[in-house]
Nucleic acid binder design. Structure first.
Lengths: 113, 113
DNA sequence: CATCAATATAAGAATATTCGCATATAGTTG
DNA sequence: CAACTATATGCGAATATTCTTATATTGATG
């Protein structure tokens, strides 16, 4: 694979690699939202949210629509949301496996006595 | 969603957010590989690769198997590889759209003359 | 136009990531 | 055990990310 493509992929993954930006995208699953909307839903500083939104904008992961005073954000390509869904499946599986390992250990310790 | 889950997701995404680690995982699609294998395939420093592998190990995204002198790495959960596939689809779509936009612009400029 | 509300940007401090180089560890073999 | 091979780790410098605070920009409204 060409380096440039790999760098591009890495930039997208990296943009996804922050809890606040994940929260932003999850809110956008429900539809578009203004910056103030994010502030209210997530309880974070406006400037901070603007900066995280700027990261997503720079990578064209979100698009904006201006309506008077406000700016509505939405996800540009739903594949981004699919990435989040896939990650959710991954997390669920990891947690399940971790629980299973703990239970296995407990059974083993039970047998020890 | 609980914060801890979001942080966990962010950590995985962040681990995916480096070109070298993407390259490592892509190599692992073909099967397990030793550190020296990565060095040869990717042409990077051994220490550097070990460090990137340590990042993937810390997040349990890869597992190791020791055979004598060598350590074989492999992907722990194939869902990680699905993430890469999904990202590939995303990149292809973005490139296609970008090309389409350029062509559209060219048509518009053609009409201008 | 003065003011207000919504959003974006700038600047600096704190922290984290990445890389190169040196060195440590573990297993192998003579 | 000495030498060798494969891999991991420690450390410092360079760079990047993140947050907070202050300020700039943009559109709306009296």
């Amino acid at each position: 694979m060409p380096d440039s493509l790999r760098n591009f992929k890495a930039e997208i993954f990296q943009a996804l690699g922050h809890p606040t930006r994940i929260a932003i995208l999850q809110e956008l699953k429900r539809g578009e939202l203004t910056v103030n909307g994010f502030v209210e839903r997530l309880g974070l500083e406006q400037a901070n949210l603007s900066q995280h939104l700027a990261v997503l904008r720079a990578r064209q992961m979100v698009v904006t629509r201006r309506a008077g005073n406000q700016v509505f954000y939405s996800v540009r390509d739903p594949l981004i949301l699919e990435m989040l869904d896939l990650m959710r499946r991954y997390v669920v599986r990891q947690v399940d496996e971790a629980v299973a390992r703990v239970e296995e250990t407990e059974r083993a310790e039970e047998g020890e006595r």
